[in-house]
């Protein structure tokens, strides 16, 4: 048996975790069926458990023992026969008998109670909600277009686009939460209590949009369920922003700027956050800067040309004025000469 699973199962103590224990046992058995125990064997086990009015909430010790037996003997086809399971269960029969009267009604009640406990809203607990979990939580909402703040008792979110504020209410398991204004819209946070790192399994589903993170590859996948479109943000080998848009399993070669705008409309600010978070270069921004620089240089050049033209025009006007003055002087002289000549002829 996977040692981690065994340890995990054996270490579960809290009341609210009993349901998890049972589920994990089932998962474990089912996992093994594909290897060594046939499905019929699982059915057999479950059938015996049912026959014995197995009460999953009050038979923690039985389950633990089952697990230990499985672990000790190793898994083989013949290991868990009906007799062995029956023996194990019988060993615990007094406990079962003592609760037998209530077993027909109680399981449902207990299950309901457990679910209520699991889904009971709680204030966030600084000891349970580690810094890393809080960081993850903030990122989920940040990437989904919300600004996150907190006080001593609650987290608050503000929609970056609509500026609408809301309160986050956690469920006891800290894996789910909802907005106070909309309890129906549950958000699956899936932040692990042991502070495990993000993986692609981390999903936030808000307003019909899903955001997946892939920390290692610095990828973000955005799913717009309403339009059946998937966007993938990732850095290329030069750490520059690349975007892929997928619809009906086809990669669409749409205009880069338009796709960027589309994503920003879907989840406002997500690209800016993404670029900032992972230190990715936005080529469009770089090009804009280059264009700005080129434009500035062009403006400067134009200014210089204007200055030069102005100087040349001034120079020309001065030369023209001098020429005209000279022309007038020359004309006067010509007229004077002409008058003298006329006078001479006249004389």
């Amino acid at each position: 048996m996977n040692k981690n699973i065994t340890e995990e199962l054996l270490n579960i103590k809290s009341e609210s975790s009993k349901l998890n224990l049972y589920i994990k046992l089932q998962e474990y058995i089912l996992e093994k069926t594909t290897l060594k125990i046939g499905l019929d064997k699982i059915d057999e086990i479950l059938s015996i458990l049912e026959k014995k009015s197995y009460d999953k909430t009050n038979n923690e010790s039985l389950i633990k023992e089952l697990i230990l037996e499985l672990d000790k003997k190793g898994i083989s086809k013949d290991l868990l026969n009906e007799q062995e399971i029956a023996d194990l269960i019988n060993k615990h029969s007094p406990q079962i008998t003592s609760t037998k009267e209530n077993t027909k009604k109680k399981p449902k009640k207990d299950k309901q109670q457990i679910e209520e406990n699991e889904l009971e809203e709680v204030l966030y607990d600084a000891d349970k909600l580690t810094k890393e979990m809080e960081y993850n939580l903030r990122r989920i909402f940040n990437y989904s277009g919300y600004t996150v703040t907190k006080d001593d008792t609650h987290f608050y979110v503000q929609n970056k686009l609509t500026k609408k504020q809301d309160k986050i209410i956690f469920y006891k398991d800290f894996n789910h939460c909802y907005f106070e204004s909309n309890p129906e819209n549950k958000v699956f946070i899936n932040i692990s209590l042991d502070g495990q790192k993000y993986g692609t399994e981390n999903i936030s589903s808000i307003d019909g949009k899903e955001v997946y993170f892939e920390e290692e590859k610095k990828e973000v996948i955005i799913r717009d369920s309403a339009n059946d479109i998937t966007y993938q943000l990732y850095p290329n080998k030069n750490n520059e922003l690349s975007i892929t848009k997928i619809k009906d399993n086809n990669v669409l070669a749409d205009n880069y700027s338009e796709v960027k705008k589309e994503i920003d409309r879907l989840i406002p600010g997500i690209i800016a956050e993404y670029i900032k978070e992972y230190g990715i270069k936005d080529l469009e921004k770089i090009n804009e800067n280059i264009n700005d620089k080129e434009q500035t240089q062009l403006d400067k050049k134009e200014e210089l040309i204007d200055e030069l033209n102005e100087r040349n025009l001034k120079e020309f006007n001065e030369a023209l004025k001098a020429q005209q003055e000279k022309d007038i002087r020359d004309a006067s002289m010509k007229i004077a000469k002409s008058n003298t000549l006329t006078l001479d002829i006249g004389d």
Binding site: I305, N309, N312, F316, E318, A319, L320, A322, Q323
Partner: peptide, 14 residues
Amino acid sequence: MSEELLIAYNKLDI
């Protein structure tokens, strides 16, 4: 026309 004026004219833009 003087040489100066011609040169000045030549320097003007179109």
